[in-house]
Design a protein around this nucleic acid. Structure first.
Lengths: 153, 153
DNA sequence: TTTGAAAGAGCCTGTTA
DNA sequence: TAACAGGCTCTTTCAAA
């Protein structure tokens, strides 16, 4: 199946797919691949950006090559169930936290973190527990067969 | 290669940081921000790409806007412990799987998946169990306070 | 490794259909 | 909306230091 294109036109969908895979693709190439004029593509991309469909562009980095070879998933459980639920904000300042998901289940949040060494992970856990008053359960990532694949729109 | 942790030069580090945040940044802007000539920056970026530090570029998409509002984390446990461990390959063809992590702990893998509806999640789980001969434990993501933040190099 | 220059390619606005 | 045409910026490659 081609997947759910959501409320996206076929042309917009093609543009988004192309840019997701190839973020630095020129408008000229883009135009060729989706079969439109350059200015028409240009206009559509701007609209996709303004509508928030495209939130920005980024380089895909090799975590290892960049000094962050250790990835972990950290599940958070509030210690005081009566405390206000502002955990994401309390943790936002910690740069090692790449993603923060609010989840259904036994635990309240799952964090994806990147560090250089086990010692740094230990220190990070200490900071997380301290900053957010939570208990943590950590799942260390041993390897990453694939990650951040482009969705099939 | 050598790829050890922070063996990234300050200048390369600045370039990588800038491109991670701003993937479509022009070489001219990049040169200004890191204080180098355009051609020097150009050369360094090419080298970072060849060394695999920069693996590519992509548009950051809004999953909701793109028709994939439902995210889940799926933990995998092999049914037959004697079976060969080729689960990632067996699942690779399923486009709804964005990331696949091999993890330490009770379970063997954690998948991050994106679908449009609960029904699609149900169907996806069926396919995963079938394709990989695993049992699954699914954690539904209720909201995403933040995701894919740029690492602090 | 960096620089500056120069040719080509691509970007992007305003205008027309 | 989409195409076109313009002026202008950016990319990319060179020789040189």
């Amino acid at each position: 199946m081609t997947g759910a294109a959501g409320d996206l036109e076929p042309t917009d969908s093609a543009i988004v797919r192309e840019l997701a895979a190839n973020g630095r693709c020129s408008f000229t190439d883009l135009a060729e691949r989706v079969g439109l004029s350059v200015s028409a593509v240009h206009q559509r991309v701007r609209r996709l950006e303004q509508r928030g469909v495209i939130r920005g562009y980024g380089a895909r980095l090799s975590c290892e090559a960049v000094g962050l070879p250790l990835t972990a998933l950290i599940s958070l459980t509030p210690i005081d169930p009566a405390a206000p639920d502002d955990y994401p904000q309390r943790l936002e300042h910690i740069p090692q936290i790449e993603s923060c998901y609010s989840v259904a289940g036994d635990e309240s949040y799952v964090l994806l973190v990147r560090v250089g060494t086990p010692a740094e992970l230990e220190e990070l856990l200490r900071r997380i527990r301290e900053s957010a008053k939570v208990s943590t359960r950590t799942t260390v990532v041993l390897s990453t067969p694939y990650e951040g694949r482009v969705p099939a729109l």
